[in-house]
């Protein structure tokens, strides 16, 4: 499907949003935000706490339905999809990394990483073989047989990145992935996440308030009061 609304030549971005509005009760979280990311591109979403960064990420990932505006992914409009289709999209084509608390505490780290593949129907041996390769890539092979409670925060985040990438998603959504880590561990997570995303040509939507984390991106957008930079700077001077 081609983009008939912009009239611009060239391929449609992999994921785009336009005119997003979302309010929680009487509190507006997004007020006309827009966004685009191409395949293989890393875009940082910056802005102060409460500016609407995470709501934007949730709308882009189809977790939250905007009150107004559209989100398009690979030529399809997310609002036109049913709940089951949206869940399938999130499971099969998107990967998620959050600040913490995303690993299942009862499973070993290897089983955690294999989980998305198992849910998609892969056999246990095949899923765990692929999971082990991702743990190695993220330099946490030793964590494989351990449970999340037995490893450090930095190791846990690298296991979480492995889990987000194991299904080779086309888009990785990372919400403050280094927020709970010290500088050195945060750098390591970002170095490995960005390298793996570039190798697999996954797009990354990286929500962060830290400039040193945003510096791993290809470009940044800033969210302020629910609006995004393009709207903020146009003709402002």
């Amino acid at each position: 499907m081609t983009d008939t609304t912009s009239g611009l030549p060239g391929p449609e971005p992999l994921l785009s949003a336009r005119g997003l509005r979302k309010a929680y009760g009487s509190t507006p979280a997004l007020d006309g935000a827009g966004f685009t990311v191409d395949a293989g591109e890393i875009v940082a979403v910056m802005g102060p706490s409460g500016s609407g960064k995470s709501t934007l990420l949730h709308c882009l990932a189809g977790i939250v339905k905007p009150d107004e505006g559209t989100v398009r992914y690979a030529g399809r409009e997310l609002s036109a999809l049913g709940d089951a289709e949206r869940s399938a999209l999130r499971r099969e084509e998107f990967g998620f990394v959050f600040q913490f608390g995303q690993l299942v505490p009862e499973l070993t780290c290897l089983e955690n990483v294999a989980l998305p593949l198992r849910l998609a129907g892969a056999r246990r041996r095949d899923a765990e073989r692929r999971a082990a390769a991702w743990l190695e890539r993220l330099e946490v092979t030793d964590s494989g047989p351990k449970r999340p409670g037995e490893i450090s925060g930095g190791q846990g985040q690298r296991v979480a990145v492995a889990r987000a990438l194991v299904g080779e998603p086309r888009v990785v959504f990372a919400d403050e992935p280094t927020g709970a880590l010290d500088s050195l561990n945060g750098e390591r997570v970002m170095r490995l996440l960005s390298a793996a995303a570039r190798e697999t040509r996954a797009a990354v939507v990286l929500v962060t308030h830290e400039a040193r984390v945003a510096a791993y991106s290809d470009r940044e957008i800033v969210v302020r009061d629910g609006r995004t930079t393009a709207d903020l700077t146009a003709g402002a001077l």
Binding site: M46, A211, A214, A215, E220, V222, R224, T229, L232, T233, A236, L237
Partner: peptide
């Protein structure tokens, strides 16, 4: 003033 800060942020990044 926001536009000045935005332009500078982008240059720093």
């Amino acid at each position: 003033a926001e536009a000045i800060l935005d332009a500078q942020r982008s240059e720093h990044l």
